[in-house]
Nucleic acid binder design. Structure first.
Lengths: 152, 152
DNA sequence: TACAGTCCGTGGACGCGATCGACCTGAACA
DNA sequence: TGTTCAGGTCGATCGCGTCCACGGACTGTA
């Protein structure tokens, strides 16, 4: 992980469809060299995936909600997690410090679907209660920040 | 926006670096046809960007926090928003229904940096108070869900 | 200092993909 | 029925992805 790798990462975070030739020009290496570096970044897990970012409304997912989950004290966190993983509407899942164990970001098409989702979550074994906030609008999301210093 | 467009979108959400030729094979059209469809999806704003998803720890961003913002009653929401936009650590920004006006997702390298960020947020004109939750771990994030029915 | 091994790069070659233009087809409509 | 247009295919060209052989810098060892 040197400065050139960070440079490549930053370029691919901005545009994942850049060609190797273009990357090579921008970082000052040959295309095969960049190709090999990217391959290593992928197989070492630094680059997890390449994703197209889609305007959610256009694919019928106009409602964004953030849902905090409070577990029952006797709950098995792994089981709860597996139950959440099986729910496709849950786009992101964070395990939090504090009273609420999980914060979920979910996207659905309608308020009705959100209601069904919340009911389903509350019925999930291990879930004591939920608290839902609705995002009226997403100002921005997953904006890449300039890469800082990698860990020592 | 027909079924083929949705198919293309789903494929690109799974892997944004698929070649047009490969997309064409999978959706059953010729490569130029797919090229044109993707171009239209991009220029109409359905496809917003193509991003490489990076393991945050490897670029020195090991601390994820979710920060709720309560605005002062007299605050100008647009000004607050612009102030937030200028802070690179804020990856996502949602305008919420409820007492808390904003929910921010931020990523920093250390707890010290998080402290500095929270101080900065609290000093921002228009911000009355903040409430921060720290993500101990990210179970998953931005998982694409199968595309549903587009809006009528 | 000389030598060998390793890492990481370059340059060349070749086949495939991106992309352009010409042409085709079916639907909508006067 | 004829016209127009959207949206597709096909073919050609050019550049890119990718494989391979080769070379230079660095390092540890005699």
């Amino acid at each position: 992980m040197d400065a050139i790798d960070l440079n490549i990462i930053e370029l691919l975070r901005g545009n994942a469809r850049l060609s190797y030739a273009e990357l090579a020009r921008q970082v000052g290496l040959s295309a095969p060299a960049v190709h090999e570096r990217v391959g290593k970044l992928e197989s070492s897990g630094v680059i997890r995936a390449y994703r197209a970012e889609i305007e959610p409304e256009s694919i019928g997912l106009g409602v964004t909600a953030l849902i905090e989950i409070i577990e029952e004290s006797a709950a098995d966190t792994d089981d709860v997690l597996e139950a959440f993983r099986a729910i496709p509407e849950i786009e992101s899942c964070y395990f939090m410090a504090g009273v609420e164990s999980f914060l979920l970001k979910a996207r659905v098409g309608t308020i009705g679907e959100l209601e069904a989702l919340i009911v389903r979550l509350n019925r999930t074994p291990g879930v004591a209660s939920t608290r839902t906030g609705i995002a009226l609008s997403t100002k921005w999301e997953n904006r890449p920040q300039p890469v800082g210093t990698p860990p020592a």
